[in-house]
Design a protein around this nucleic acid. Structure first.
Lengths: 103, 103
DNA sequence: GGCTTACGTTAGCCGTAACTTACGTAAGTC
DNA sequence: GACTTACGTAAGTTACGGCTAACGTAAGCC
């Protein structure tokens, strides 16, 4: 269940901000760090966690390293919440129906 | 943006397990704690965090307290990842197309 | 009233993880 | 080769959060 590692990774606000910044396309580490209140090494560490969670992939380009969103893992995460929502809503409606009938 | 608090809350594995256990219907605190390797007070604390994040609601029933999933916040979370996935996939395809054309 | 059940809350401990500073390194430029 | 750029990594500190033990409390039962 890779989505579990992904959820662990996205629990951190800084990491989530970094990840959200990659939604529109790949970016380099230094670029990301400039817009954040943390140092570049900190961003580097966060990117490693995101990478190990399967949320991003890395590509070297000269001295730079471009990180981008991995759509596969993101898709799994989407499916996870999609299923969760469907199931929870069904249970919620069933409970409301029971309450209506029985009081 | 309530989904932000929700993501913070679901970053913890124990809390996520508790939340997933509620997908099929409401349950009491003691019931949940019995199936987990942590104490009941620990579960109680986790439920408070989930409640503050808007992920669950509470209802008293005698001496017990029943917790259930709040489908609204869960729905926001689902939409968040749905939009994220769509946007990231579009960016991914556009980048792949560029690479195909330009080399 | 006294007892039990099923909770929430507080205090305090302890492990983890996020952060910075300092250093090492591969790729490009001259 | 010397220098710069853009990184990753290692070491060390600090702060946060998850946990338990102990206590307080409201509801039901006798």
């Amino acid at each position: 269940m890779p989505y579990r590692d992904a959820m662990d990774a996205l629990g951190d606000r800084t990491r989530r901000t970094i990840f959200e910044g990659l939604r529109s396309g790949p970016r380099a580490v230094g670029e990301i760090a400039e817009e954040l209140p943390v140092s570049r090494p900190a961003v580097s560490q966060h990117l490693r966690v995101l990478k190990e969670a399967g949320l991003v992939t890395e590509r070297r380009e000269g001295t730079r390293r471009l990180y981008r969103v991995d759509p596969d893992t993101l898709g799994e995460l989407r499916d996870y919440f999609d299923d969760f929502w469907s199931e929870a809503l069904a249970a919620f409606k069933a409970a409301a129906e029971d309450e209506r009938r029985n009081g």
